[in-house]
Design a protein around this nucleic acid. Structure first.
Lengths: 240, 240
DNA sequence: ACGACATTTCGATCATGGACGAAGTAATCC
DNA sequence: GGATTACTTCGTCCATGATCGAAATGTCGT
């Protein structure tokens, strides 16, 4: 049996063009390779601004350590900082970071099996995921949309009908947004998909404006109002 | 001006359900956080099997070091190993790794500016990217497809016309594949998109079978045959 | 102005893991 | 069979960076 290597090592392929790129990939991954940083970034995924101390608590580290991580994330353009009095509020700089984190979450999940749901019940029902809705309700809405063909099978774009339905709801969709219009975002607690991307954010804003949901506690938890329950039943046939 | 933190640190949110998940995200990122490993994975992106020595050359490290990296990648299920005589061939285990790497590449690029193209000319023209075609020609094909509406604007799925055109070319598309049917894959050298996903792979296979292209050198480089040039001109109006 | 709180800076410690070369195992070539 | 090649294992070295506590800086509340 032949066992000649397909490629001769002597034939130099090192110092390929990708050299900088590979460094830059590794650098990017290094930022995500520390559990404390990931914890902080995950907290920031709710789209809010958090103080340094709050983030040190979620990551379970000393505030000085958190500070070091934060200044690093700041340098590498993952987050921005707004000083307000004696607090410094940190938030995600762009949607890209959130999207990258989502991808990594998705890839990680496939490894973490079997699946036991340890999410607190309050959060499991409804919560924010960066700037859109997550949790059981969000997953149900997503599946309603899939069944009724508001979104295509890949979950990457709204269908024509979908757009019409959004209009009917009174949600204006700006066609010129540079952001991904619609995405299937993996849900932490349910491990199914919910609606992300621009459409997800628009829907969330609409829910808030209508008074159908309200954020509690300053956390990710979201409560459905009485009006909201009625609307969910009427629009998506969901019983909360 | 109010400067009360939105969230009280005392209110415990640590030990959230995500704890394992965050660990697992960090672990995943750690694998990608080493330049040598990234270099090896990038080499493996061409879909071929590489020997340990070859990979140590691309990564520019001692073979013993490469061996350590490879056994780690093996443990973490990124690659598989086939022993054949005194060689051990390594290849990517699944499409997921390749896809993850593509995402990281895409995210990294936005940081590496300004853009100077240092890709060797041979590779810039045409090469493989995992299991589909990349390089200038691939980018041109992709743009032809976009203009002629073979694929939707997000580049995530083939249009009805697109599918018809594939059929007309004699490329059978299996609807039942679990793989992403079609994706806009960022091109290293051109920094534009080319066709990836299942459709990209199918097109590449078809090109090979028709004798329009041939892989050279055992590397990523791909040459266009005389028949291929005629086909490219005829089908996509591309002059090589 | 003073004390309490929020945050960063500094210095020191320590664990991780990436690097190499030398030695060991195993298959191939002549 | 003996030399060569491919690859892994082992031991050691060393740089990085995550961590903490203490001290410094800055802001708020009263």
């Amino acid at each position: 049996m032949a066992s000649r290597p397909l490629i001769k090592p002597t034939n130099s392929i090192k110092n390929d063009s990708g050299s900088e790129l590979e460094n830059s990939i590794a650098a990017l991954a290094t930022v995500m390779s520390d559990v404390s940083r990931v914890k902080m970034l995950c907290a920031l995924m709710d789209g809010r601004a958090w103080t340094a101390t709050e983030l040190s608590v979620v990551a379970d580290i000393a505030s000085s350590t958190a500070s070091a991580h934060l200044s690093r994330l700041l340098n590498e353009n993952f987050i921005i900082c707004v000083a307000q009095g004696r607090h410094r509020y940190y938030r995600l700089k762009g949607i890209e970071t959130a999207e990258l984190l989502e991808v990594l979450m998705g890839a990680s999940w496939k490894q973490v099996e079997p699946f036991t749901n340890k999410t607190p019940i309050a959060l499991r029902k409804a919560r924010t995921c960066y700037d859109h809705l997550a949790g059981e309700i969000a997953v149900n809405i997503y599946e309603f949309m899939l069944i009724n063909k508001w979104i295509d099978i890949e979950g990457q774009s709204l269908t024509v009908q979908g757009k019409q339905q959004f209009e009917k709801l009174g949600i204006a969709l700006d066609e010129k947004t540079t952001r991904k219009k619609c995405s299937a975002c993996l849900d932490w607690s349910e491990r199914k998909y919910h609606l992300g991307g621009y459409a997800g954010a628009a829907l969330f804003t609409h829910f808030e404006r209508k008074g159908w949901i309200s954020r509690v506690n300053g956390f990710r938890e979201v409560l459905v109002t009485y009006q909201g329950e009625k609307a969910l039943k009427r629009l998506f046939n969901i019983v909360v």
